[in-house]
């Protein structure tokens, strides 16, 4: 499992180089072919026991974060989110911009009006790095620099916690699969860029590899929190991999969906359905680019994604891996293709 290392690497959308290099260096010895395409996706071909069909397995390397968009007169930095980031959960957090450390500050409670419950507007969110003025800040930080959370990976009891589990969890599953032997069919392991900014990397993959079926391995929102009634939970921690039947822009191909569900049932793997249809994944792009490919989604449920720290259950990770092993390495995925 590579989740700890992957989680602590820096890879906001458009800045996936560090993650890509890590995966490359650890996976090179397992690859039959490996290339980085024009937009930065890392694509690895692993020959299978059979070569008449091709399987595409994908996870995205990028995480949500922020970017420096302004250097203020007082030496503080204005930032904008990259990907779907709720700025309210960022207040008070430590951040890192290259070697520069900072904190996303806001006026102390003593200085706020009584009962003030509004969160600051995005334009009022500032990063304090201790620069005494604009000039000093400009010597150390440039517009367009990425702003990272500094959360370290923790392992405690039944849980992992850390940043960027969405979708380093998926990347880690792919690496585990790739290093675990020979897949049933020729398989492309795709580590994608810029999913969080609009499913961008995935839009050029089908054209390059012409797969017969695609499965996206994601980390998805749990929603099993006290503020929400149970019928609004998207997934629940501890109930195993979440299988998607429909999400934004795309209803998962019924054969792929059924294949995933039946594989889990036959093997006695605990699984759950992803029970909200909001949010999209790269499956949407795969389905509708080039000649099209039936695509499915398997996700590790995760609490507090798109925030500085998220929480995942170990057994959910391992059950997801087990399900993917059956589909890809054992070849159960074969029930999914059309023609």
């Amino acid at each position: 499992m590579y989740l700890k290392e992957l989680s602590e690497l820096s890879g906001i959308s458009g800045d996936e180089g560090e993650v890509r290099d890590f995966i490359k260096s650890h996976m090179a010895s397992y690859a039959d072919e490996m290339w980085v395409d024009n937009v930065g996706n890392l694509l690895i071909l692993k020959k299978g026991r059979e070569s008449d069909k091709k399987v595409l397995i994908a996870a995205h390397m990028d995480e949500v974060g922020m970017m420096v968009v302004r250097i203020n007169e007082d030496g503080t930095l204005g930032v904008a989110p990259v990907g779907g980031l709720d700025m309210r959960v960022c207040l008070g957090k430590r951040v890192r911009i290259g070697d520069v450390h900072g904190v996303i500050g806001y006026k102390a409670i003593h200085l706020q009006k009584k009962m003030e419950d509004k969160f600051p507007a995005r334009r009022d969110v500032k990063v304090f790095c201790g620069f005494k003025n604009k000039d000093e800040a400009a010597e150390n930080v440039k517009l367009g620099d990425y702003v990272y959370f500094t959360t370290t990976f923790e392992e405690k009891g039944e849980y992992f916690s850390g940043k960027a589990f969405d979708d380093r969890g998926g990347c880690s599953i792919l690496m585990d699969l790739l290093s675990s032997g020979e897949p049933a069919y020729d398989t492309i392991f795709a580590f994608l860029v810029q999913e969080e900014t609009g499913l961008r990397g995935s839009s050029v993959v089908v054209e390059q590899v012409k797969p017969d079926v695609a499965i996206v391995v994601e980390t998805t929102t749990a929603g099993d929190v006290p503020e929400l009634e149970e019928y609004r939970w998207a997934t629940h921690l501890g109930d195993g991999p979440a299988v998607t039947f429909a999400h934004r822009g795309y209803v998962v191909d019924p054969r792929v969906f059924q294949t995933i569900v039946e594989t889990a049932e036959k093997a006695g793997i605990r699984y759950q359905y992803k029970r909200r249809t909001a949010g999209g994944t790269d499956a949407f792009r795969f389905a509708r680019s080039a000649y099209g490919v039936p695509a499915g989604v398997v996700s590790i449920p995760c609490r507090y994604i798109h925030s500085p720290v998220s929480l995942m259950r170990k057994d959910d990770y391992h059950e997801t891996l087990k399900l993917m092993q059956l589909l890809v390495m054992k070849g159960e995925v074969k029930k999914a293709w059309r023609n």
Binding site: G249, Y250, F284
Partner: peptide
């Protein structure tokens, strides 16, 4: 297929 969700089918038929 799947026009209502996101013009999925037409995108690939056009390519084809």
């Amino acid at each position: 297929m799947q026009e209502e969700t996101g013009l999925v089918g037409a995108s690939v038929a056009a390519y084809d």
